[in-house]
Design a protein around this nucleic acid. Structure first.
Lengths: 345, 345
DNA sequence: TTGAAAGCGCTAACAA
DNA sequence: TTGTTAGCGCTTTCAA
């Protein structure tokens, strides 16, 4: 049933040349290795004729690389990560790399297991959104000389290429925007995740509110996504306890989404009457009524920077390179929800 | 810098046994091959001690398989596909397979290229959402004995395992529901994609409307996503031309999304006054005001069926199996938007 | 019950 | 300018 594909050796035999010759021509090293024009042409023609495809596994075994890049994120089906992944896939494809997506679930053990397997599969590089507790595994990769680029989050106490969002600035901008629109009692709703990107956002909010002489109102919800109804109750209580609130800043887009739903359930006018802004954009914010303002992460730029670093590191694998920490700014997208309200103010 | 990992041979030398022995023990074939208990134990202990990880590439080269499954969809960042992919990833992980996600962009050439590369990489199976024009490539894989399971769409004139949605029934159910709620002038908005899943949905709508003695109103929009503004205009004209419409059935979730936005722009009361239902659910439908009814695809079940077939085919690679076409039913999720309206009727 | 050795298909150092 | 050949690390047949 399975017709065996011809191997290099088969080809060499048919053409009556050595496998070396075929290999060199195949890899475009014909000229460099001073193989005659005619021979090159003859080989190339034959390769084309039989539409020869080399066995990539054999090549990997020999060369030690695989032209595969791993993209490890918390959840590949998360909108933000999947969009970034999509662009990474495209850039990789153009450079003849493939991308293995995988979900860490923010779990260190699972992540370490994945890393082990991929290492044994000779993947050429890792782009990782690091869960807590994988510092050693990452250092190990670095020791090994495997390119690693961190994304979205840092690991403290380790020198490593990273592409990050300037969370503090973003949070500050969003808060400032609300203040400029005349909001005085701005709530910040976040999750109790002890990770620097969330802490920076909180810090940005607090500093800005304080600077403006306003009071801070902070609600911290449990991270556990299974306890959505708990969160709903907490939001409801929070709103009830602070009737003076005129606006809400959600620290991440899935909070905004569930938050909007909750607000709507509490009182269908609430969403229109409160100033609302979200950290992280969502494609549904512009279809909502009112449309929801957001501080958007620069998805395309992030993907490009990740791949720029990755391809560079792969190429210059044996040179010592300066570690780069790329801090990108997002963009404040002002829609209806964060504009001055006349109904309530 | 790179400390070389120990190979099977190294281990054999250290233990003063043959590589065969180590290999057998490593693969749990010790007993079967009648290696003595003590030896097995000695080898196992050493393997554990040095935390030996075999080189998976070498193994692949030798065995001809890779424990990698490819999941090819139109766009990996599409909500529906990424959710299915996420579950497939999980199931695979439990069976010690990894998943290579890749986007076809519904383009035959790109898809064929991907298939070629993956074939040379010895992937163990393909789950494919087939774009038009890849029938031959798929048949080729089948010839090769590589497991292929189609998802979401069929390829006409080819016997192949597939997991599909029962589009006709789904469309019928959604239409019936609107009729039961008292809607009389139901529009069907679709895209001009000549693929059977879309045609079945259209057919389901038409048959049901006809059966109920109602008039059909069909708007077909161009597929090209770049021409969103065109679509908006067409929707607007369509609504204007048929003031008697009391409800709209969108044939796919991204149509619903852009459609809702358009409706809202035309007249902010329109969304509340029309009956609305969407083929395909979206997580944002339940946050919208009003919440949007939908015929939801059974994401988890689909992923499970895909993997059931895939793992089965991989395992029984050399047996002739009956082709299975799994047709799944979705679920009608009734929310506010499709309930009887009192404001307009 | 264990070991020797032949490959899987490719690359590249070395020889001719 | 081209060819010979030794591996890459593993599995598995055959021999001992």
């Amino acid at each position: 049933m399975k017709k065996k594909r011809p191997s290099l050796r088969d080809i060499a035999e048919v053409l009556n040349v050595s496998t070396t010759t075929v290999s060199f021509v195949l890899n475009g090293k014909g000229e460099e290795k001073k193989i005659s024009k005619q021979l090159i042409e003859r080989v190339e023609n034959y390769l084309k004729e039989i539409d020869y495809k080399p066995n990539l596994i054999a090549r990997s075994l020999r060369t030690g690389n695989s032209h595969i890049i791993v993209f490890m994120v918390e959840d590949v089906s998360n909108h933000f990560f999947s969009k970034v992944g999509r662009i990474i896939e495209d850039i990789s494809y153009k450079h003849d790399y493939r991308v293995l997506f995988c979900s860490t679930e923010n779990d260190a053990k699972r992540t370490r297991e994945h890393i082990e397997v991929f290492k044994e599969r000779q993947v050429d590089g890792f782009i990782i959104v690091p869960p807590p507790g994988i510092k050693e595994a990452v250092e190990d990769l670095q020791q090994n000389g495997t390119p690693v680029v961190l994304f979205d989050r840092k690991i403290e106490g380790i020198e490593i290429d990273s592409v990050l969002l300037n969370n503090y600035e973003g949070s500050r901008n969003a808060t400032l925007h609300l203040i400029e629109q005349g909001f005085k009692n701005i709530a910040f709703i976040t999750i109790d995740l002890n990770q620097n990107q969330m802490l920076d956002r909180l810090a940005g909010y607090r500093a800005t509110v304080k600077e403006a002489g306003l009071t801070e109102y902070i609600l911290t919800l449990p991270y556990d996504p299974d306890r959505a109804s708990d969160s709903r109750k907490k939001i409801q209580e929070f709103i009830a306890a602070h009737p003076q609130l005129d606006s809400i800043f959600f620290a991440t887009n899935y909070l905004s989404q569930s938050g909007l739903k909750t607000l709507h359930q509490i009182d269908s006018n609430l969403v229109s009457n409160l100033g609302i802004i979200s950290f992280d954009d969502s494609y549904f914010f512009e279809m909502y009524a009112p449309t929801i303002s957001a501080y958007a992460q620069p998805i395309e730029l992030m993907a490009k920077e990740l791949m720029r670093l990755m391809l560079d590191r792969i190429q210059k694998k044996n040179e010592a390179l300066n570690v780069e920490e790329v801090n990108l700014d997002g963009e404040l997208i002002i829609r209806e929800s964060s504009l001055k309200k006349y109904t309530r103010l």
